[in-house]
């Protein structure tokens, strides 16, 4: 019953988000950002390299890291927080399915169509611009790694949104999340380019596994341990979010129920 409900939630959300409008906006945004940032790094690297990345590697890195953020619906953390803060979550708590897995399945379902569109676009863009693939094996590993990055992203968003059970407004946490992903996640700057102490701090958080890990693989660095680390963080993050959700639900039922 529960597995069937989750599958239904996933597929319904996936079908609902396949619309020309949302795919067009996401694809064009993806192309603009990737073109601008990869051109910048390519020009900066020139014929040499920066922190071990050549201009070709930068293009593949950024074409992949951008998928990991643009495939996630904008302001999703804000929306999840609002659902909790305004009490809409109460209706979801009445369902015969645990709230968290149900929500995760739905949000992940929304991500899949954009992931598919952007992955195709990214492949075409990076191939046309660089006319080469840094490493076929790296690229092969990058595909599951992007999916794991998206799963970790969605789970971590829910972990941040749990704050709304206590503060009623997750707007601030959404902003904080975006900045952390930008700075610590290696979204526009590979971690090796950052100062050493900064890179060490980043590895204490899950953010590098939401953008840097798949991007690094696509850039030609065959480091399968990144995928293992992603899996470990997903399990850990899911456990932590589930505990936090349960605590939040109990608090909600005591004060509002």
């Amino acid at each position: 019953m529960s597995a069937q409900a989750l599958r239904l939630s996933f597929t319904t959300a996936m079908r609902a988000d396949v619309g020309f409008s949302s795919l067009f906006v996401a694809s064009s945004l993806y192309l603009f950002v990737t073109t601008a940032v990869s051109t910048l790094w390519s020009v900066a690297a020139g014929d040499g390299s920066i922190a071990g990345y050549t201009s070709t590697m930068f293009v593949w890195y950024l074409a992949t890291s951008e998928i990991c953020t643009i495939a996630i619906p904008q302001r999703v953390l804000h929306v999840v927080g609002e659902t909790i803060g305004t009490g809409e979550i109460a209706a979801e708590m009445l369902r015969p399915v645990p709230v968290l897995p149900f929500r995760l399945a739905r949000e992940f379902g929304k991500v899949i169509p954009k992931f598919a569109a952007l992955a195709c676009l990214g492949l075409i863009y990076a191939t046309v611009v660089t006319r080469t693939i840094p490493s076929a094996l790296g690229l092969l590993l990058a595909f599951p790694s992007v999916l794991l990055a998206l799963a970790l992203h969605v789970t971590t968003i829910h972990c941040f949104a749990v704050a709304a059970f206590w503060f009623r407004d997750a707007g601030t946490t959404w902003f904080l999340f975006q900045k952390l992903l930008f700075v610590l996640g290696g979204l526009l700057i590979p971690l090796q380019v950052l100062p050493d102490w900064f890179e060490r701090v980043a590895w204490l958080t899950p953010f590098p596994l939401m953008a840097y890990a798949p991007a690094r693989l696509a850039a030609g660095f065959v480091e399968p341990w990144l995928i293992a680390l992603q899996l470990a963080w997903i399990i850990g993050m899911y456990g932590a979010t589930r505990l936090a959700f349960r605590a939040g639900e109990r608090k909600y039922m005591r004060s509002d129920g």
Binding site: F20, S21, F24, V25, S28, L29, F32, V33, A36, T39, L40, V43
Partner: peptide
């Protein structure tokens, strides 16, 4: 949709030195 995409394009490309393109 073109309105939203055009907005993103203008702000994004304006944020980078024009001579890199």
């Amino acid at each position: 949709e073109i309105s939203e995409s055009g907005f993103h394009a203008l702000l994004l490309f304006s944020a980078y030195p024009i001579d890199i393109f």
